[in-house]
């Protein structure tokens, strides 16, 4: 396990499908990785592959054989392979994201996406009924489009609905699934249907398909909410805010912990609002459209979550709540 000596070994970052240059998940994680590696004066290598799914065990073992002290794996499909390989290499530490895998030398990183989504839902519900905000019809209708019906995605959706209902119990949240993470055309179509049905704001939790949601907002003069990275700039003014997952913070944190001999092996690291692991974007383009009182309200809601006054429902841990079966 982690010793002072281990920290001198090189570290590797396995890039997920999509590769570097995706201006999203991988790039963000790599930025955090580079930062941590530079500060800890470690040798760090990113590993990309077109065939990353199939090469899971191969790359993990090669890095372990070659004496790497830490391997951070961004590829979701590597979970099982990582757990297996980790058993064979007690001298190497491993990090897997967005899932929990066993092993004394494995750290799992989870994000409290429901917390950030709660804020997004609260903001959406507040502005929907506020006709002073350009383009709002005043009806308490908002929407969310998920990439697939799964607990991983419903974690976002339930947080969003909870936040909206806490602001306005009469709010109607339209929910739909695209069953696809890579087709903007589907996202465009589904979002347009929601806007036609009176929705003022639609939250996208559907990767590439979600870009179509943003496009629909831009075309119809409504609002979208981005996800994972700051997507406000994708269509300035049409993206109300983005629910950012700070993958960079996550990677940076675990690499620094490793360097400091504090690797959280066998533990699950959860990054929520408190750790700055999730949160809303700075709203560069929409900040001035939203009444200051609304923004203040969101800030106070955030404080309530941090203080534990508001408990945000976590589908992964708690199962489905009554309001979303």
């Amino acid at each position: 396990m982690s010793t002072a000596l281990a920290a001198e070994k090189p570290v590797a970052l396995i890039i997920a499908q999509g590769g570097l240059g995706d201006q999203s998940y991988n790039d963000l994680a790599y930025a955090g990785f580079k930062k941590a590696v530079a500060e800890a004066k470690l040798e760090g290598k990113p590993v990309e592959s077109k065939d990353v799914v199939a090469q899971a065990a191969d790359i993990l073992r090669r890095a372990s054989d070659a004496g790497f002290g830490l391997v951070v794996d961004l590829e979701y499909s590597h979970g099982d392979a990582l757990a297996t390989v980790a058993k064979d290499y007690a001298g190497t530490d491993y990090v897997i994201l967005n899932q929990v895998k066993p092993g004394a030398n494995v750290a799992s990183v989870l994000f409290q996406e429901q917390e950030g989504s709660y804020l997004a839902g609260a903001l959406a519900a507040l502005v929907a009924t506020d006709t002073s905000v350009k383009g709002m019809n005043g009806k308490p209708i908002i929407g969310v489009i998920g990439g697939t019906k799964s607990v991983g995605i419903d974690k976002f959706i339930v947080g969003y609905i909870q936040g909206a209902r806490d602001m306005n119990p009469k709010v109607e949240v339209k929910v739909a699934y695209s069953n696809n993470f890579g087709d903007p055309a589907i996202g465009l179509q589904m979002a347009k249907a929601m806007y036609d049905g009176g929705a003022n704001v639609v939250y996208q939790v559907a990767g590439g398909t979600g870009l179509g949601v943003i496009q629909a907002a831009k075309e119809t003069g409504h609002y979208a909410i981005g996800v994972d990275t700051d997507q406000d700039g994708v269509a300035p003014g049409a993206v109300l805010t983005s629910m950012i997952k700070r993958t960079d913070v996550a990677v940076e944190t675990v690499v620094k912990d490793y360097a400091a001999g504090k690797f959280p092996g066998g533990k699950t690291v959860t990054l929520g609002l408190a750790e700055d692991g999730v949160g809303l974007s700075p709203m560069k383009y929409t900040h001035d459209l939203i009444p200051a009182a609304t923004l203040t309200k969101i800030e106070s809601v955030k404080k309530d979550i941090l203080s534990g006054k508001i408990k945000v429902w976590n589908v992964v841990d708690q199962g489905y709540p009554d309001f979303f079966k």
């Binding site: 499909s77 697939t148 019906k149 799964s150 607990v151 991983g152 695209s178 069953n179 696809n180």
Partner: peptide, 14 residues
């Protein structure tokens, strides 16, 4: 893989 055959509990398409 994103719908009927998605593994339970999986966040990703598998």
């Amino acid at each position: 893989v994103n719908g009927p055959l998605l593994a339970r509990g999986s966040a990703n398409s598998a």
